[in-house]
Design a protein around this nucleic acid. Sequence first.
DNA 1: CTAGGGTTAG
Length: 605
Amino acid sequence: MMGTSVLNYNHHLLPSKDLPQSSELNLKQKEQEFLRLLKKCKSLEEFKQVHVQILKFGLFLDSFCSSSILATCALSDWNSMDYACSIFQQLDEPTTFDFNTMIRGYVNNMNFENAIYLYNDMLQREVEPDNFTYPVVLKACAQLAAIQEGMQIHGHVFKLGLEDDVFVQNSLINMYGKCRDIKMSCAIFRRMEQKSVASWSAIIAAHASLAMWWECLALFEDMSREGCWRAEESILVNVLSACTHLGAFHLGRCAHGSLLKNITELNVAVMTSLMDMYVKCGSLQKGLCLFQNMTKKNQLSYSVIISGLGLHGYGRQALQIFSEMVEEGLEPDDVTYVSVLSACSHSGLVDEGLDLFNKMKFEYRIEPTMQHYGCMVDLKGRAGLLEEAFELVQSMPIKANEVVWRSLLSACKIHDNIKLGEIAAENLFRLSSHNPSDYLVLSNMYARAQQWENAAKIRTKMIDDGLIQTPGYSLVEVKSKVYKFVSQDKSYCKSSKIYEMIHQMEWQLRFEGYMPDTSQVMLDVDEEEKRERLKGHSQKLAIAFALIHTSQGSAIRIIRNLRMCNDCHSYTKLVSMIYEREITVRDRNRFHHFKDGNCSCRDYW
DNA sequence: CTAGGGTTAG
């Protein structure tokens, strides 16, 4: 761009009749005419041509006029910053406005470093920044996550007394948010007297980027209460994300509703976060439906639906969609591979997973991350290829983290490989020793091998270390309200009715051949007591409650914090058949769809 | 006199 000089007279793209004739107009009118023409330019070439005429007429005198010319050029979308730069350099005394224009131009062109350098120049040349300068220069800091510069600039804001400008405040919230200094973001947000939609958007986004989901929803609630509420896609995208992570299905659906009411066509980002919300809150159907109706799909939308299918146990379909994505010419990236590999792992598609992993490394040249190795260790381990899984852990170019060791340990438990399990546990506890469920898996492994002493030793260690087993619970939504059940729960006023139901269910299940499986009850009590305990597992209570309070044939959705036990799994399969209900259960790792006596996991979980 | 803040999802 610099190659084309300002003084290039050779291109005449505009018909000469459009150019003002000097004889007809006085200077002032000519100036106006030129400015009008400049604004109409559709390309840099056209712009240069008019600009050259202006120089030829010697009209480049008025500061307002030259600022206008500069702004037209710098803020155009024809990649004209070099040319704008050459105009800027010819200004004798660039004003605050001119600096603002140039800084904005750099930011628009993603050249954030230059924006900050120019701001620095501005200070050096003692041109005083104003309330228009800061939003844009702070945006540059935000994009670069340049906290040092950001803080200095925050100081300048105070020095110039601009700290009460809403635009400046919003930019500061955003800047600190992008620099992960949530305390500063909140401090500025709190002391704002007037908050705009952008203020809420910035503060919610700041919390979302740190995965502070409860805070996101709380802020969203505050915002709604203060009546600043409008279905803004940029805000709802983060709110939906929070719903996804918290399993807040009801709120998510409400958000969808208000989007539909207020916005005619939802953009890709909102569609993708909606899809993810539905899928991860248990409604794969709804997610698939949205996916199929999306006109524009990208890598992110594909990876959401692929990982969704995987989580729900539909590995084959996940692979199908993955190949459709490739056929459409969309190149899978590292996250897409995490989705498809984990889908393979959930469904036990070992060969397919291995193939994809190799393709990713050697064909697409994507360097595997810890997550990819985690998927592969999980894939092999679950499938019983424990030695291979262990070899992979040892040969990984990066040091395995706790997630990888954890999945190896639980695979060893499933396949009763104590020797390897102990190695995995040792490494796991070296990296993290505060997770009660890790000890339980290990103790469980010993118990399965009837090594009672070792099992007891681990449990004693847990108690000595003050680790308390996370209480398991099940959530169930009945008529848009969420009810929480813990094991042996007696807290609901209708609980006698629930236990009555439990009793009745057990009777019917036994008729269909149900035998309580007490092997996973890790309590030192007799068989009879174990069977009693089993009956009161939170998932069973939740199902009984839902069977009583929902209409015949309607689906039941349950969210658990822990993995369910084998007994609850086979119990739920039978309930789905006898009571003719579809039951979806989300546990720590995945979804189970119970229908007609079967589960979508095909007992591979 | 000209121009401005939050561009989000896996």
